[in-house]
């Protein structure tokens, strides 16, 4: 479903070159839940953002559903509608009501009519458990509710893949659970997911595979059991000792 080959992304600024993603080769199978962990600044977000073209890659290839993002002829907008993304900061559209947040892209991108888009939006709000908030503006919602709206908004495009970049990191602890529950449901339904998170419990429970990144490199990958019981690499051991 997703395949990256020697993916590199560098940032240059003030005469310095940062190797944010430094030669990552990985793949994600359909229906698989892949969790990416790693220390801060290790390039997890950058890697994820490359996957839906929010960052242009410096070299290498990303093939999503048979389409190469590195190919100049690829229409990124087309790829992006198949790849939903949920951000740490929610990024809801503050000038639009909750329902409009979910309806907008359905109408402008998927060309659905309003009735159909609203029906879909209500169905998804029901699913993430905040049907009663559809007429509110995002600023009136708690962090957890906002993040669930953001998930519903991404799902409304019927994506084949969902990317999550630390979806619970800016939430108060008591709201983390409600968002993780929605994500677990999604995983159970067979959604292909790539999740950057510091929630080791989620990784252990839901992930099919865990990738550990450090300094832009994919250091180790394996099943959760492998990771949390017998990690191979020194760096992985060190990291897990710090977070667990």
């Amino acid at each position: 479903m997703i395949k990256t080959v020697d993916l590199k992304k560098t940032f240059t600024g003030r005469g310095q070159t940062v190797y944010a993603v430094d030669g990552v080769t990985a793949n994600v199978e359909p229906g698989e839940v892949v969790v990416i962990i790693g220390p801060s600044g290790s390039g997890k977000s950058t890697f994820l953002r490359c996957l839906n073209g929010l960052e242009t890659l410096t070299s290498g290839h990303i093939v999503i559903d048979g389409v190469d993002l590195a190919d100049r002829k690829t229409d990124l907008n087309k790829v992006r509608r198949e790849v939903g993304m949920v951000f740490q900061q929610f990024n809801l559209f503050p000038h639009k009501k909750v329902i409009e947040n979910i309806v907008l892209a359905q109408m402008t991108v998927r060309k659905r009519d309003r009735a159909e888009a609203e029906e879909k939006a209500r169905m998804l709000l029901e699913k993430v458990g905040i049907a009663e908030k559809e007429q509110e503006y995002p600023s009136r919602l708690s962090g957890g509710q906002q993040q669930r709206v953001a998930i519903a908004r991404a799902l409304a495009m019927d994506p084949k893949i969902m990317l999550f970049d630390e979806p619970t990191s800016s939430l108060d602890p008591e709201m983390v659970g409600e968002v993780l529950d929605v994500m677990k449901d999604l995983a159970r339904e067979g959604m292909t997911m790539v999740v950057v998170t510091h929630e080791m419990g989620f990784a252990r429970e839901v992930a099919d595979r865990v990738l550990f990144m450090d300094q832009g490199k994919l250091v180790e990958e394996g099943t959760p059991e492998h990771f949390f019981t017998e990690p191979r690499e020194e760096r992985t051991k060190l990291f897990l000792k710090q977070v667990l």
Binding site: N77, N91, P94, L104, V109
Partner: peptide, 27 residues
């Protein structure tokens, strides 16, 4: 307008123009 707004719009598949018209300019 925070960059995250554009990123959210683009990640939904909106074009640069749609993003400008529906998301960035109103705000």
């Amino acid at each position: 307008v925070p960059k995250g707004q554009t990123e959210a719009a683009r990640s939904l598949g909106m074009s640069a123009t749609q993003n400008m018209v529906h998301i960035v300019l109103p705000q």
